[in-house]
Design a protein around this nucleic acid. Sequence first.
DNA 1: AATTAAATTTCGCCT
DNA 2: AGGCGAAGTTTAATT
Lengths: 274, 274
Amino acid sequence: MCSCSFISYRRNTLRDRNPLTVLINPIAAEAEKAVRVAFLHRRTLIVVGRCNVIYKGRAKSKLEPGERIAILKSDGSLLIHRSAGYEPVNWQPPGCIFNVRNRKDILEIEARRQRPRESVEVAFDNIQLLSVHDLTDLGEFSLYASEEDMQKAILLDPSMLEEGFEPISYEKKIEPGFVDVYGIDMNGKLVVVEIKRKTAGKEAVLQLAKYINAIRTKSTREVRGILAAPRIAKDVQRMLVTLGLGYKFVDPKKCAEMLRRSQTVKLADFLQDS
Amino acid sequence: MCSCSFISYRRNTLRDRNPLTVLINPIAAEAEKAVRVAFLHRRTLIVVGRCNVIYKGRAKSKLEPGERIAILKSDGSLLIHRSAGYEPVNWQPPGCIFNVRNRKDILEIEARRQRPRESVEVAFDNIQLLSVHDLTDLGEFSLYASEEDMQKAILLDPSMLEEGFEPISYEKKIEPGFVDVYGIDMNGKLVVVEIKRKTAGKEAVLQLAKYINAIRTKSTREVRGILAAPRIAKDVQRMLVTLGLGYKFVDPKKCAEMLRRSQTVKLADFLQDS
DNA sequence: AATTAAATTTCGCCT
DNA sequence: AGGCGAAGTTTAATT
């Protein structure tokens, strides 16, 4: 049975300069003080407690009282998480200005931004835990087997798509949008490649067909279309045949592995010499 | 300079049964114990500390060591948040199975799910804060405009319902209850409007029909009924046709925007005059 | 279960 | 600043 708030000002590990403030069951006045310090020092703030939330902006929302987790980051972003669900119930992207006040023992925090003009207001009438952190995070994040990685892999080794294929460009602007990879096959025909990281559906085929048609209206040269994906949806096979398009199995994992072997390759490096 | 872990087992407010566990700078063994208890009791877990994260599944990702916030919810969802950004750097949707172990003073937490088969592994080599919460959250979340806002918007701009429509009254008492909006169309016919904030089901149609019938028993004038909602349930379309009622798509979001705009417009007009 | 459409989508890249 | 496309998109509704 501990009714007092607990505050620790220093962490005992890693670095001396790495303050940590933790309040347990603080009253609003105590909490407000800690929040102000957190804002002043651009720290990360976590508040767990009973609150209601109002959002006004592009839309409007109201969240009736309940116990939730609020995270306020130093970049001006805000997250309100309920006890369930992967997505935040309310949020605010980076770039907000935070405000805090203690109004009749209710801790009110506001995250406001312009463009678009919107705000999230959180009012805590009870706080289980409030902590202020200085998060040092320089670790690199790398995602493998993204669509971009597949694109890189095809540019790195065009033969994986088709023997004799030679890329000319990538993300090339064609009337309706951007072609993933664009090149010439062993017979000198133009080739448009549409890449999908997972099962390619009809929308991928239609997109490819659109590009092909756009090119045909502008050029008399023969154009082929190839859908590069690990799998195609079941109706899509017939669609490809009907539209005269090709399909090539490409494994995203193998692409990722290939890139790992030839590390630090940038997309722009490929076509430079050609 | 406090190097001890701090544990509070009871919250002093709201309810006696509402345990809260907080560990500050715990070693992996202590943390592991608390995490196991949290999993066992299906509690919400927050861990702040230095970790690296590996994701394997639809794609693959690796996050090099840094200080982050991890949230594990009782529905089996996981979030890893860095010091910046609105989106989690790594996550796992609800339905995961969590595992924890202490491996050479490293706290390893795994969130695994099938379909799609994927896992996120988090390894903490230092923990600033670990807290376990029992979040009671029954508060309702309502998005977009309220039904009242939609009503206001229709009164403000009746043409959004139908060209030439002119409201006479709102919340008018008719035998079974109160009609949302009541007016006259361009041909002089009476119009009863039933508003729903979200998908209109059969109960909305029946309510509308009741009002119409009530009016018809009292007046010889022609009466039309219009259901105003962002969407109607699938069987309701036929029901409307059968009962000779109309439907008008009304977007609550647009209503909210309109009200907001009208406020600013009024303000602007006021300022222009001066 | 598969498909389609919307999201306070966000995020990035390019014009 | 605005517009379009992609995302480990997610989520909900419908077939």
